[in-house]
Amino acid sequence: MADIALRRIRKVYGTEAPTVALHGIDLAIRSGEYLAVIGRSGSGKSTLLNIVGTLDRPTSGEMRCDGGDVFARDDDGLASFRNETLGFIFQFHHLLPEFNALENVLLPRRIRGGRLDPGLVKRGKELVERVGVGARMYNRANNLSGGEQQRIAIARALINAPRIILADEPTGNLDSDSSVAVQGLLREINRESGTTFVIVTHDRHIAAGCDRVVEIDDGKVLRDFRPREFTDDENWRSLAPCNCRERERGFASPSA
């Protein structure tokens, strides 16, 4: 069953000299899937993530979720869709520095409105424990290390029990140890709760560990495959950054 289905999503920027960022993308993201979106800079993968995250509207095409076109909603409707259905993990953590770790985790719930009951606070605390920052629950967000901040961001993405978590370079700003730990955490959550993950990444380790990889190039889906169906070596090659890959394939790329 598809959690979210993109149909002929086109995105064009500018009117005078229009730049086409996405050329009619069709993509079905299945429930519980652990999906990586890769592609070089400017390929359109960020635009795609913004559209799936409803931070941006497509020029044409639709995104179906629960039988309706999400973009038929008004801006407030999109805001509540984001709040209730999606969880976000950003590259730069993006916690609110004015609030402590626990408060940041509870943020999406408080945005949704209603009272902050003890049960909810308990769940927030559990999530902070779950991501391994329990000891620094009441620390200001900017008094946490990069890895801790990203873990708190993961806990925050989980508080509203979203169906889909969108992660944009979730380890892009972390050292390799933290990066491995965060990757492991994301995968665990996916297995435990069946939450769908869409991870935009440059990291071939992450991509290789995903159920499915979608490569975007020039605003189109270039490849859509399951790494498990290939050998490690094949994956290692095919998931290499584009410039290396081209060299390995023998296409000399003078500018890269």
Partner: peptide, 16 residues
Amino acid sequence: QRQIGILKALGTRTRD
């Protein structure tokens, strides 16, 4: 700006 961006991304409505 950053905080506003986060709040909006997490589903805060424009008027809020």
